[in-house]
Design a protein around this nucleic acid. Sequence first.
DNA 1: CGGTATCCGACCTGATACTG
DNA 2: CAGTATCAGGTCGGATACCG
Lengths: 123, 123
Amino acid sequence: MKENTNKYTIGIEATLEIIRGKWKGIIVYHLTTGRKRTYELRKLMPNLTQKVLTQQLRELEKDGIITRIIYNQIPPKVEYEISDYGWGLINILDSVCLWGEEHLDKVYGDKALVLKAESDVNF
Amino acid sequence: MKENTNKYTIGIEATLEIIRGKWKGIIVYHLTTGRKRTYELRKLMPNLTQKVLTQQLRELEKDGIITRIIYNQIPPKVEYEISDYGWGLINILDSVCLWGEEHLDKVYGDKALVLKAESDVNF
DNA sequence: CGGTATCCGACCTGATACTG
DNA sequence: CAGTATCAGGTCGGATACCG
């Protein structure tokens, strides 16, 4: 059943719904550097299991954030890419990320900066 | 035990962690219109139980987003207010909200606009 | 009035095994 | 290589009852 369709009161809820998934932020982050194959994503996120990865990718696809490109061949090949629509969200989230990093600085001090240095992109 | 201190890889994770709670967005939203007493918040969000409200407020407080003002008196009086630090986040989230609203338009069409009209503030 | 304690169910995530 | 199925564990939110 579950007719719990209590829709959002404010825009933030809608956005949150989309990136709430534990890994979605990181997945999208990795896609900002370019189209990726499934196993590439797996290598980039070793702690993320196949199942959950697929799951989260499906949701992101459903929300129109990413595009799934299927090469019909053997062995299978699938690539994921941020859609034009998705880029709109990402550009916005960029400032959120900056805030988040500053927040980390405040809360954890320098420790938080370690990982930051590992990437060029902010998001 | 649980030494799962796998800290964030990117800023977005930190921010998400803060507003991930199901009600946090809405709570903060209501506080944007000014300092509120506990029972005022409860009236504004009838579907939110006392326990969860307190819970989410505590977390927001821990993260420095809101301030808890305790009047030491009988009967008790407590007020919640967005901190200066919290406003920093909110200003940023504002553009996220706009995106969210547009997303709603895209996904649900006009239906999504109903609630939008009920408030002056974007967030 | 504001908050804590306890219990429970739903959901989300993860481990493992298997399919085309 | 990419994805599905199944099952188990943890976390979160919600209902209820009680305390200062």
